[in-house]
Nucleic acid binder design. Structure first.
Length: 850
RNA sequence: GCGGGCGUGGCGGAAUUGGUAGACGCGCUGGAUUUAGGUUCCAGUGGGCUAGCCCGUGAAGGUUCGAGUCCUUUCGCCCGCACCA
């Protein structure tokens, strides 16, 4: 019998070290490919090894670990792997700064991080560890590139790209955030370069459609992806370039894209972007040329940051040339304007000042006419022009464009139709244009192809060879991997492009001397499929076997930061679909449920950063309190998806609870009677109530775990610990039910163990006498029937206001409920007329009386 | 401008389908233990007053026997995208 004096002290460090050693030596968390249990794949976004782990990692992995451990107890075969996104620029920078090879720096950091992961007690299957900078991993990225090359999904093209002058490399569109480099914050320059791309646009429609089925993803992430893909329905319309006389159409057509073909009768000018080759050609040698060149130059000087914002003043130059409006036959002056983008749509726009705010502002700036072609029913113009097909009113006096729905006026045969996005007028005009070969219905995406080449050393080499005779030739599969050389002297500024032992080779097609491509792939290519490699991490014939991937995929629970809402999560969806089309897997969405955990801020709500000096390192909590307290605090302070401010008091509170629960379990264990089965009918009233609470709170805790709502799961266990400790305190030892004590102790330990695993194992073995791991133990079963009490307190309302309470049998009939309720508030019903009585069994009775 | 989300005590936050608002914890107040501090334990803790009633989930309406929850309007905040035609 344990009393206060014999309960061992809670020594977190000793307990945690002990169990970490046992789990490791017993392979407790190995995922078995041949298990008959249903699978669950729990995954946290793998870290970049830039040093030790920080609080954000600790939170991310604690959430995943609690899920993984609970899933195991719930009978799943759990795959819970970890790895490192190990290529990237910080390693190169460190190499240059400290003179250490990038690889050595990276591997040392990974070792540090693994130590911390183990110290936190995360239940990873370390046998499946993946490091993206290992040749055994990255060669399969090269393999995938070659497969995509064969399918036409990888290609080389020359176009204006974002060049980061500080990182000395190009960036993908997705990596330019708010007009700045996602990593270093520099403003990228536009450069015309030959670069390598993956054709993610081939999957634009499928990537968009797939979002609808991602029920387990947060709305905001789905919204961001939809936004990024940016589908627009509209029409392409061909405008004939006019001869130099400005009125005679030539054979040369310039096509525009518009979502509002219904407004074509309101077009009064035609727009090209400053970078347009056509614009340069049109003005060459004309009086407009110098003004055009000046505009072009000024646009190049303005950064893309400053070019943003709809309030910006618009600049333009008239080229002196015209196109012909295909429906009205009227000539339209061609202007070059700085608000037109070269790489969206067709790079040419019809200017409709009446229906588009930007065009409106442009027209006002340059004195171009703004004829009304759309009006709402309550607009006087509507009455005046609803039947007028010809242009009668050539100018409006509005102060902004009318871009809402309205009825077409002065619009030829389409006058009177309802116009707007997806309107009858749009359909009618597209049909009219199509029949005459002047235009066609089309869909535009904002999504661009994924620019994957980087002019950096520490990355996965693109497995291509350039031969002067044969062009770009793929490295044969049997020559993979293209190894990244380790002998480069980064400190001296040497690059792959200058390192002859790497780039000198022969052409696989003709055998003549040729040069390897010295660009490496964007690190996001490495992180786009690591979750597939975990399924079969040591395969040396394929990136993964189909059997293994089909067994484990999709990832059931994916946990990580919101910062990857577009980049990583979109690329991974794309990669998965490519693998599916290669016949490598059956599934076509990699992540079933996505949880974006909130940030850990400092005590004042500020972002933790080294430069601010407000970083709370995980070790500062582990050392005084232990990993279990840290895990408990992280999960209890706030719901997983919300930001929280680091709170030293709350951590101390978590430690207080874990110690109290420790004492309570030992106290219960001291009264336990392992030999006897729990006999519920024989329990006395106090014991029966504890039994009922165990079932009630156990059910709540289980449901909260299933929803990933750890803060309330913990609060349910806290309530149970409160009740149990009161029981031990109030009931004399000889009157406690030993079997009940054993059961309650066991269930408290089991329910808290996904969160405080070392604490759980120690109590399970030392206080409760178990011999096998707690994680081979099934999650406790609770019974909804046993959670009910025989009597229940109901609320008695009069006209919806609480006026009294009554104890009734839980299975009381409506009539009994009414009688009990009336008795409880009899005094307040005197002289009143009861109109109606509503009864809600087990909850309340509402008496409507006046 | 477009899209997503959120407003509940001093604080973090609870509240399946509309059914006792504020679970659980932090903090605070009082008490016990203690030489003291800390620890632990007990009691209390939304606001108001005339002390058993009134008011209370950003605000105002509505539906309902009954609204934090549903509907309408409105205010405030956060996040993402944005000269995308």
């Amino acid at each position: 019998m344990a009393d206060e004096k014999t309960i061992p002290a809670y020594d977190a460090e000793a307990i945690e070290t002990k169990w970490q050693r046992i789990w490791e030596s017993e392979d407790t968390f190995k995922a078995r490919d041949d298990s008959a249990r249903p699978k669950k794949y729990v995954l946290e976004m793998f870290p970049y090894p830039s040093g030790d782990l920080h609080m954000g990692h600790a939170r991310n992995y604690t959430i995943g670990d609690a899920m993984a451990r609970q899933a195991r107890m719930r009978g799943f075969e759990v795959l819970h792997p970890m790895g490192f996104d190990a290529f990237g620029l910080p390693a190169e920078n460190a190499a240059i700064k400290h003179g250490v090879p990038a690889g050595a720096w990276t591997y040392a950091n990974m070792d540090t991080a693994i130590k911390t992961m183990k110290r936190m007690g995360f239940s990873y299957d370390y046998d499946r560890l993946v490091r993206t900078c290992d040749p055994e991993y990255y060669m399969w990225g090269q393999w995938a590139f070659l497969k995509m090359w064969e399918k036409g999904l990888a290609y080389r093209a020359t176009s204006p790209v974002n060049w980061c002058p500080s990182c000395n490399t190009v960036l993908a569109n997705e990596q330019v955030v708010d007009g700045r480099c996602w990593r270093c914050g520099s403003v990228p320059e536009k450069r015309e370069l030959s670069q390598w791309y993956l054709k993610i646009t081939d999957y634009a429609q499928e990537l968009l459609d797939g979002i609808d089925a991602l029920d387990g993803w947060p709305e905001r992430v789905k919204a961001m992806q939809r936004n990024w893909i940016g589908r627009s329905e509209g029409a392409e319309i061909d405008f004939a370039l006019a001869d130099e006389d400005g009125v005679t159409p030539t054979d040369r057509l310039i096509t525009v894209f518009t979502t509002r073909p219904d407004t074509i009768y309101g077009t009064t000018f035609f727009l090209l972007p400053p970078e347009s080759a056509l614009a340069a050609e049109l003005v060459a040698g004309t009086p407009a040329e110098s003004a055009y060149l000046e505009l072009k130059r000024s646009v190049e000087q303005v950064s893309s940051v400053d070019r943003q914002g709809s309030g910006r003043e618009k600049h333009g130059v008239f080229t002196g040339r015209y196109v012909i409006n295909p429906l009205t036959g009227r000539p339209l002056p061609i202007w070059v304007a700085d608000y037109i983008l070269l790489d969206y749509g067709t790079g040419a726009v019809m200017g409709v000042p009446c229906g588009d705010q930007r065009d409106f502002e442009f027209a006002r700036t340059f004195g171009l006419p703004i004829p009304p072609i759309i009006a709402q029913r309550d607009d006087p113009l509507y009455e005046q022009l609803k039947d007028v097909q010809d242009m009668v009113v050539a100018e409006v006096d509005w102060d902004h464009a009318m871009d809402a729905e309205g009825y077409l006026i002065q619009s030829g045969p389409f006058t009177g139709l309802l116009g707007g996005k997806h309107s009858p007028a749009v359909d009618a005009i597209i049909e009219y244009l199509s029949e005459r070969g002047l235009g066609r219905k089309t869909v535009q995406f904002r999504l661009r192809d994924w620019l994957i080449s980087r002019q950096r050393y520490w990355g996965n080499p693109i497995p291509m060879i350039h031969c002067d005779c044969c062009g770009d030739v793929p490295v044969p599969y049997d020559q993979l991997p293209v190894l990244l050389p380790e002998a480069l002297d980064l400190g001296a500024g040497e690059t792959l492009a200058e390192y002859a032992p790497f780039y000198e080779t022969t052409c696989p097609a003709c055998g003549r001397p040729a040069r390897r491509i010295t660009d490496t792939m964007d690190t996001f290519t490495c992180s786009s499929w690591y979750y597939l490699r975990y399924c079969d991490p040591r395969n040396d014939e394929l990136p993964f076997s189909k059997d293994a991937a089909d067994r484990w995929m999709p990832v059931d629970n994916y946990i990580g930061g919101i910062e990857h809402a577009i980049l990583h999560l979109l690329y991974s969806r794309f990669w998965t679909k490519v693998m599916r089309d290669l016949g490598m897997i059956d599934c076509d969405e990699p992540f079933e449920n996505l949880l974006c955990q909130g940030m850990v801020k400092d005590a004042n709500g500020g972002t933790m950063s080294k430069s601010r000096g407000n970083v709370v390192p995980p070790s500062s909590v582990i050392e005084p309190y232990g990993a279990d307290t840290m895990r408990l605090a992280i999960l209890f302070i706030a719901p997983t998806e919300k930001d929280f401010n680091w709170d030293e008091e709350a951590v101390a509170g978590a430690n207080r609870f874990i110690k109290r629960a420790w004492r309570t379990v030992w106290g219960l264990a001291g009264s336990a009677d392992g030999a006897r089965e729990l006999d519920v009918p024989s329990l006395d009233a106090v014991s029966a109530e504890l039994w009922r609470r165990l079932n009630e709170l156990g059910l709540k805790c289980t449901a909260d775990f299933d929803r990933g709502q750890f803060n309330t799961a913990i609060s349910a266990v806290m309530e149970l610990v409160n009740d149990a400790s009161k029981y031990v305190q109030d009931v004399p030892a000889e009157r406690r039910d030993g079997a009940l004590c054993a059961r309650v102790a066991h269930d408290i330990v089991a329910m808290l163990s996904p969160i405080c695993p070392h604490w759980g194992e120690e109590l399970f073995h030392e206080a409760l006498g178990a011999t096998a791991s707690l994680y081979d133990e099934p999650w406790p079963a609770f019974d909804a029937e046993q959670a009910k009490s025989s009597m229940v307190e109901i609320v008695v309302q009069i006209k919806g206001k609480v006026r009294g309470r009554a104890m009734v049998a839980v299975d009381a009939t409506d009539g009994e409920l009414e009688e009990a309720a009336k008795a409880a508030v009899a005094a307040q019903l005197v002289g009143k007329d009861i109109k109606k009585i509503i009864t809600v069994p087990g909850r309340l009775v509402n008496i409507v009386a006046v």
